[in-house]
């Protein structure tokens, strides 16, 4: 019999975010077979709505099952034109609207909000100087970011990121929730 039990749920907008998050988690030492990815099953451009709609239920599921399973919930949503704080509020509001308590510090729920979007972090990892206003080009193959992520993770681990975009700094703080 097979024995897979997912313990790390990645909730994200699209395949690029999924590859980025999954590769980072594997580089951090998470078992790839324990990872379950839930990206928008809809077409392109519908990703942030999918994350906002799915978030409260995934938090509910996390809370109801984390007593029995060592669960982690990893959420990615692009900031797009919003600030980091505004995007976080969007997620928090979905919890309030669903009658759920806000995220607690001890809960292993990490929310990553790249600004403007995941490509900013990817291009930063590729040693480019980035800002959070420009829109950086998408990679033709999502996996092309992978060779750079181990180095990014190593820099995160050792707290030696050089001039990272502010949203990535927030991301480092979120990472501590699940490590």
């Amino acid at each position: 019999m097979t024995n897979r039990k997912a313990e790390i749920l990645i909730l994200c907008e699209d395949l690029q975010q999924e590859v980025f998050a999954r590769s980072c988690l594997i580089a951090y030492g998470f078992n790839r077979r324990k990872i379950r990815s839930l990206k928008s099953p809809k077409g392109k451009g519908a990703g942030s709505q999918f994350v906002l709609e799915s978030f409260p239920n995934e938090v509910r599921v996390y809370r109801s099952r984390s007593a029995n399973l060592a669960l982690f919930l990893v959420v990615l949503i692009d900031a797009d034109n919003y600030t980091h704080r505004e995007r976080l509020s969007h997620l928090e509001n979905t919890l309030i609207n669903a009658g759920l308590a806000p995220r607690m510090l001890e809960e292993k729920i990490a929310v990553f909000i790249p600004k403007r979007n995941i490509e900013t972090w990817i291009h930063y990892s590729m040693h480019e100087v980035v800002n959070e206003e420009n829109i950086y080009p998408k990679l033709s193959n999502q996996s092309d970011c992978k060779p750079y992520l181990e180095n990014l993770i190593a820099q995160c681990r050792e707290d030696r990121l050089i001039d990272p975009p502010p949203s990535l700094q927030h991301g480092r703080a979120e990472l501590r929730r699940i490590l």
Partner: peptide, 12 residues
């Protein structure tokens, strides 16, 4: 698959 596909429903 066009960009417009799946705006309202999962592709599956």
């Amino acid at each position: 698959i066009s960009e417009e596909e799946g705006k309202d429903l999962p592709l599956s």
